[in-house]
Design a protein around this nucleic acid. Structure first.
Lengths: 347, 347
DNA sequence: CTGAAAGCGCTTACAG
DNA sequence: CTGAAAGCGCTTACAG
């Protein structure tokens, strides 16, 4: 691959018999240049096809207008939307994004963190991988003085910026809705409990049952059912119980809920009459399954914007540590056909 | 935000009474260091929490192990999957990705290109925005000696690496399938004709009709129907014709096909008996609509891997310009219920 | 095997 | 308003 020499400010300076510092000043819109020489310099820059070398500029300035983002998977709607939201804001500010995926592996997550630190990014945004246990790599980020914003799946005890969903309240809303629709035996598909979000969703489930004085039945709580396949698996087991549930809250994801729906359909159960189904995340497909699936919208794009704004607010504020460090976004229950047994309720 | 000083190779050198060059050699696994000093250096680096500054390293080495990717939207399944594929390969090689979205605007695309050139990325991967007209910015990339890989939506006449889908053949397959299923009046929803992919899909439609000697009816060809809403709009117009179509090929996207399905369902038409529907892209939801939607799979993740491999092959090859510059991937027709009128065919 | 020096391309106090 | 010089943190020929 050819490694052709690119024109530098020295090339421009030489051509105009000027000093490189003047060229630099002119190109960076610094006021200390006469209009005449500025014009001369800009014209020559154009003529020579000059592009700034951001590596050199950032090295000299000691920072990099770049934000690093680490997510478990970029091709999952939720994360792709959050990234789109971040990008929308950072683009306006002239920042770039370096995006890494941990593939749900914390070993790989650690590597991503190291790469981003090496790159001298201005900020690191992260949502933890599923096998999260140790937050040493997050502490390393802090030790290097890099602002850290955790979102959604976070290490709770670590003092960093956080943008969260109120998962517990959302789950309370979902389960309360199921109870109000007359469902009596509500099962829970739960996700890995090392992740805060799944712990909170479970807590919300339990809180709602308590609120309505519905007994908690351990056999209706299924661990680790957070893919479509695992959701289907758990559903088969649940529906084969002597006393099967009449509703399933797939708190892990809509994919899991889809697994539930497919098994129910295959077994000839009527949804929502015989089985209510509620998912989580408001994936696009939940609107078009038949029946459509009740779910929880997490405002992912707006979460992304919030994350980016948090960073810019922080660096623009003169006083330190005066800004709220934690932003919680309230997700919204989207009621659809899969739980709407009591049609007179008028949703 | 605190700007704390990070430890450099000089800090390590000073502490050990060595020269920075030895430190650099030890850290870069260069052989010209004694085992003893190497160990000493590595230990001290760990102790002082040293992280390399990639900016400086890349500036000095004259390149950046980074690949820039520009796509219209990252939160569209197709692009997110391609990016995931690229990332999978580049990660193995220790390269990073800088991802930009043009938001379907070529003005913004130009800005993205400039940013990436400034960043001295090693390679730029791009899929063009919908309002593509001018390829000046792509030529700039070439002028700067940066390898350019176009994929999917490309400027055809420009001599660059290209990773393409055989859109024409895929469309021929789709329309042939419709004809073989007994559909007689097949409508086409087409996308912006300034993009190669939509021109090719239209060409495939026309070629299939010709092959089967089916007349082309201009009133069955609808321009610019590439969102769900526009697809629905066009479908209404089509179905209100004196002689409406009995099948619709939404060559633009599955979203458009979804619009078709919704209108058909609302109007009480039976799919596939009274109306056949075929989409494009194999979005996840096409499998779970009722009926499920026949569509075309573009092997997006594997496209991403192909793109990345193309780059690495090129830089690793000693002979220049000996590698195939254009890779075409044959998409696959996925036949589902929405076009399966003739069930005895045994799909 | 180790050191001294130059240089990647830029920015920025410091003079004048 | 312009120039000369130093330095961001690293790598790499060149000596020895």
């Amino acid at each position: 691959m050819k490694n052709q020499k690119r024109t530098t400010i020295y090339d421009i300076a030489k051509k105009l018999n000027l000093n490189a510092s003047s060229v630099s000043r002119a190109l960076s819109n610094n006021s200390n240049v006469s209009e005449a020489t500025r014009k001369l310099i800009l014209d020559t820059a154009k003529e020579l096809n000059y592009k700034q070398n951001s590596l050199a500029s950032n090295l000299r300035k000691g920072h990099n207008q770049t934000i690093g983002v680490i997510v478990p998977r970029i091709n999952q709607n939720y994360f792709a939307d959050v990234i789109a939201g971040i990008e929308e804001v950072t683009y306006q500010k002239g920042y770039n994004l370096v995006i890494c995926q941990s593939n749900e592996s914390s070993a790989r997550e650690v590597k991503c963190v190291n790469t981003l630190i090496n790159q001298h990014v201005s900020c690191i945004v992260i949502s933890l991988s599923a096998d999260f246990e140790d937050d040493k790599h997050l502490q390393t980020i802090k030790e290097h003085g890099i602002p850290l914003i955790q979102f959604d799946r976070v290490a709770e005890h670590l003092d960093t910026f956080k943008v969260l969903n109120d998962n517990e309240q959302a789950s309370i809303d979902a389960v309360s809705h199921l109870i109000e629709q007359g469902y009596k035996r509500i099962a829970l598909l739960e996700g890995p409990q090392n992740l805060n979000i799944f712990r909170q969703r479970k807590a919300g489930y339990l809180a709602a049952l308590k609120k309505y004085k519905v007994p908690v039945l351990p056999e209706l709580i299924k661990e680790n059912a957070w893919t479509k396949e695992l959701g289907a698996e758990s559903t088969k087991e649940l529906l084969n119980l002597a006393e099967p549930p009449d509703a399933i809250f797939a708190s892990t994801s809509d994919f899991s809920a889809l697994g539930v729906l497919e098994v129910a359909t295959k077994m000839g159960l009527k949804v929502p009459e015989e089985l209510g189904i509620c998912g989580y995340s408001n994936e696009a497909f939940t609107e078009i399954t038949s029946p459509s699936i009740t779910t929880i919208d997490q405002y992912s794009v707006s979460m992304g914007k919030t994350i980016a704004n948090l960073y810019f607010q922080e660096i623009e504020s003169s006083e330190k540590d005066n800004n709220p460090k934690i932003v919680s976004i309230k997700p919204k229950l989207i009621v659809r056909s899969s739980t709407l047994r009591n049609k007179t309720e008028g949703y």
